[in-house]
Nucleic acid binder design. Structure first.
Lengths: 365, 365
DNA sequence: CTGTTAGCGCGTTCAC
DNA sequence: GTGAACGCGCTAACAG
């Protein structure tokens, strides 16, 4: 098998195809690129030559001249977390359906990592990016503005950034939390613990202090906390700082804090958990205290899963449209990429309270 | 603000930086690209100009001339699945640490999608790819060979392909399954159900038929089944085709099949579940039959999670190093990308049986 | 050490 | 309809 040009690494170029077909590069490019007009005859010759040589377009080169990479980026806290995994799945599926591929970057809630991630995506000339940002204040959004300034469309997902007037795809965390806590209140509870939320080193002395802390933390955490307070307010239940968790958001800490709330003289009779590990941490504390739900304490948590449904008793949970969040974000982004005006609006998807059997009346009732 | 060249979309090129600094393109390229030698003086001038203009290298153009994209691809069944999410997290983290980014593609176990995915990655000129392939037979690996032929290194993860002599990063599924089933046997069980595995439409009449079906299905499923049989054989427990699940691998089906096994005259006293949803499906069947574990039936499952630990009683589970699988695969791949010889070996990571409280003696004992 | 020049592979005017 | 020639932004030989 002699003389075949660059058979080497199977890297066949359009010129080689043209040569094989006996036509000019442009003709080959036109038929292979699917643009312009080519006579049926030459067209066939080119196609045959491409087939024979095993030609595959070099997307990089194509991007070079067209300026579009058909690639988007998605930046989340942790792709290993089932919530973000589902969300990223939605992004990948929706973008793939429209001919785009997805680069995934995890930041582990580190703002510097997030900045680095946007730079990577800018450098790789993605056509747009989706960010579940850890940024909260107006000073932390420089990297997002930078991307925008460089012509890379951005849509926010899961977490809105009030300081930024951008398209965002979220659920109504505040309302979902309020509904859950209302449910607890309706069952007769007045001592309701809030597990997980804005991370604080000090217990908040006042409600104002709590909200201030929330403003320095993740948007979702703040919203869920506000929903909790909303429900309390509506029912005229005074806010008790002792009933909110303080410290790092890790399962162990949730266990400790719930244990503390359980040891209070006037102890909690219900718990609202804002995340999976807040719930599992709480469950550990209950077991350690030899308490059971919903008899001793009622439970509602965020992020439903197959496990929550098979717990005994099954857990009442808030289900988020994880896949939908990502898919919608991709749709909105690609609409912009493909010419639509950036809507700069907040798209709110519906969450759903799945009522099972972890809520009952408080012990005394 | 007049006359600034292509201030337009912030798309500053290296030539503009060179002009601003009053040096040749090459000098600018050398300092900005971090290669070759440049005098400290000019170096400073270039850096200042780049800073002033907000220069960012175009990774696409760079890839064009260097031939490396600093991007790898990872192909899995479903990024939304916590197992693959963790695995992909490992890939992303490990590759990012070495300056590479990751494109993620889900195939939903569809071989055509898998082929399409490899093509996408080839076209985008990734430097390598990691695949958890749905391919089993030698005829289904054309796309993998194609990638290899085109010079794109491939490493397999989670699932080996015996027909292919490639680097693979896996756990010893067979051994892990055997250990779990042995544990059940040691507790006195002889009627042990196998939930989830090679999907079959017909119940296997014989053991031979079962193994034949396994050969047409996912590698992991076959291995876990073999481990189950190994343990049975060692204990001289005859294989009973009625104790293996038949049908599609969905939670509902697991529930139905476990219900069936529970209704058998000589019913099961233990269950080995090979995946999360096989376990949750089984749990649903137990509840429906008003049976509890480990009193009525003992349980061991694959893929540990925070939920499994807070079940009551907590579940004995096999923990896979999900993040580690992905990270190791990325390491092996990047070693090859960066010049190492493809080892063509199977790297086996350790899984771990986490003993909790879902195994007890059989009811009669 | 520095600047000039030639590609990388493809899209795209512009004459033929 | 078709083909030659130029440009995308960068790296890498090659001279100076």
């Amino acid at each position: 098998m002699p003389a075949e040009p660059s058979q080497a690494a199977g890297r066949v170029t359009i010129s080689e195809v043209a040569a094989e077909a006996g036509v000019g590069r442009a003709t080959a490019a036109r038929t292979l690129g699917g643009y312009g007009h080519v006579s049926p005859e030459l067209r066939q010759r080119v196609l045959a030559a491409a087939e024979k040589l095993g030609y595959r377009a070099n997307a990089l080169a194509r991007s070079m001249s067209t300026g579009v990479s058909h690639t988007i980026g998605v930046i989340v806290a942790d792709i290993g977390n089932p919530f973000f995994a589902g969300l990223v799945g939605g992004v990948c599926d929706a973008s793939r359906a429209r001919g785009f591929d997805t680069i995934v970057l995890s930041t582990y809630e580190d703002l510097d990592e997030e900045v680095a991630a946007t730079n990577v995506l800018i450098d790789k000339r993605v056509d747009g990016m989706i960010i579940a940002s850890a940024a909260v204040s107006g000073r932390e959004v420089g990297h997002v503005k930078e991307a925008l300034k460089r012509g890379v469309p951005v849509v926010l997902v899961d977490r809105a950034i009030p300081a930024l007037d951008l398209d965002a795809v979220v659920i109504d965390n505040r309302d979902a939390a309020r509904e859950a806590v209302e449910r607890l209140i309706a069952a007769g509870h007045r001592r309701i613990g809030f597990v997980w939320g804005p991370s604080m080193t000090q217990p908040p002395a006042t409600r104002r202090e709590l909200l201030a802390a929330a403003a320095r933390n993740l948007w979702t955490d703040g919203e869920r906390l506000r929903g909790y307070l909303d429900a309390l307010d509506d029912a005229r239940i005074p806010f008790d700082p002792e009933l909110v968790m303080v410290g790092r958001k890790v399962e162990e800490r949730a266990t400790e804090e719930v244990a503390r709330m359980l040891a209070l003289p006037n102890r909690i009779t219900a718990l609202f958990c804002t995340e999976t590990e807040a719930m599992t941490g709480a469950l550990r504390a209950l077991r350690a205290a030899r308490l059971s739900y919903p008899r001793d304490v009622s439970l509602i948590g965020f992020d439903d899963s197959a496990w929550a449904a098979v717990m005994d008793p099954p857990l009442t949970m808030i289900e988020q449209p994880v896949h939908g969040l990502g898919a919608k974000a991709a749709e909105v982004l690609l609409d912009i990429v493909q010419g639509a005006e950036a809507g700069r609006e907040t798209h709110t998807l519906r969450s759903r309270l799945i009522v099972r059997s972890s809520v009952g009346p408080p012990p005394g009732a």
